[in-house]
Design a protein around this nucleic acid. Structure first.
Lengths: 220, 220
DNA sequence: CGCCGCTTGTTCACGTGGTCACAAACCCTT
DNA sequence: AAGGGTTTGTGACCACGTGAACAAGCGGCG
């Protein structure tokens, strides 16, 4: 299955949940495309990778497609998650996702700072990052989230891999090297902002040197 | 310039900063590729879009390339940012990025909850989302970050656009529709985890809970 | 001063993903 | 039961991005 398709499946899943919430029994590829914000033909081709679960002239059964897609995405089981690094971002993630999403229970929190270890965040006691192997084995953790500073990220990644974690979501602004068999995805806020900056500048009409001399603070 | 190239420029920028920090005067495409985690040929092709700033037989002058890239990315000027939605994530972003990155000062915070409006986060007073037009104009805000629940995201996006914001970074798990001329990028934690879940399951050898007595439609 | 090694910039072939278009298949109506 | 309208599934085509290979160009060395 194409990687691009895999990346869209979660969007379809969410759109299907919306449709289900609106009491729709079936949904057409066109409607689903509208909800997911993509092309209708792309939706059909993507869904065809899962199998022929649609009915010509009718559309897709929402319930059934939801089940099949959840199964394909591996959401019929829980995937215990460990968060490493409990700065601002790590704490926010611990609190945010605990009630935000089902299927990814946060069962472990780790940090290297002895002042943080032992404290409790979102009902989970923070352990030392050294204990990762034991913790991971005990909870069957397969997904790790890195929310440390960039300088510590590679070390944490190595520890996660050594502890048997084979999926990593990296929030640290650095490139991580991991074994072939480990999946890794990154979320980099600075990169996103810089991309926006690039297009923003383009629209603003090329490089603006110092044309801005706006007197701010007038609002107060 | 290809969109894929634009998305990599920030990686090169960060790698160049690392090289600069290591007192490297020049850098080869191969070394830069290693730092950025991409192919060397891709690096050269990407950099060629910026112009011929390299020297054959030597490499790229780190200082000079840094300057050119910063200019291209629009980082020679500040881009004031507004964050809308100050739940766990919004607050973390306000605290995290304030000292994390240069060039994107957080000059405004907005929320719709009257209990949050008026409080102070990271030294900035939270204003009501209704005041966005005034605030945006006063600070020259061109980038907005949406950190609200999904249900409020489209409304906030509309308000941002109406206030003149033309670049949006969306953390809410929903598809936003904005005018053609507005750039939008999304960061969706649930989607990232589900993608990891997909590959994780594949590696684990198919569905982990196979003891299902589902009477699969008898195939004729 | 000319040769040699090194690195860039560019060209080319390839693979992946996106879009279009249409036959096949299904439901509903008559 | 047959036909019309609707929607899926898929094959063909096109655009884009990637990776390798190579000539052009630069600095250093004898």
């Amino acid at each position: 299955m194409p990687e691009a398709t895999v990346a869209r499946l979660p969007l379809y899943l969410r759109s299907l949940l919306e449709a289900q919430h609106a009491n729709a029994a079936t949904i057409s590829s066109e409607r689903l495309a509208e909800l997911a914000g993509v092309n209708a033909a792309k939706v059909r081709k993507d869904l065809s990778y899962l199998g022929s679960y649609g009915t010509r002239g009718v559309g897709y059964d929402v319930e059934y497609l939801l089940f099949q897609m959840s199964r394909e995405l591996g959401l019929t089981q829980d995937w215990p998650v460990a968060i490493v690094g409990l700065g601002n971002l790590g704490q926010a993630l611990a609190n945010y996702m605990g009630f935000g999403d089902r299927g990814f229970p946060i069962v472990a929190l780790c940090d290297a700072d002895p002042r943080v270890v032992g404290t409790e965040v979102h009902g989970v006691v923070v352990r030392h990052v050294e204990d990762l192997p034991v913790i991971a084995a005990a909870h069957g953790i397969s997904i790790g989230i890195i929310a440390t500073p960039a300088s510590a990220a590679q070390d944490v990644a190595d520890r996660l891999v050594a502890a048997g974690v084979s999926s990593i979501l990296n929030f640290a602004p650095t490139v991580l090297s991991v074994p072939e068999e480990v999946s890794i995805r990154k979320v980099d806020l600075a990169v996103e902002l810089q991309i926006l900056s690039f297009y923003q500048q383009r629209r603003s009409g090329g490089p603006k040197l110092p044309p801005l001399d706006i007197p701010v603070g007038v609002e107060d």
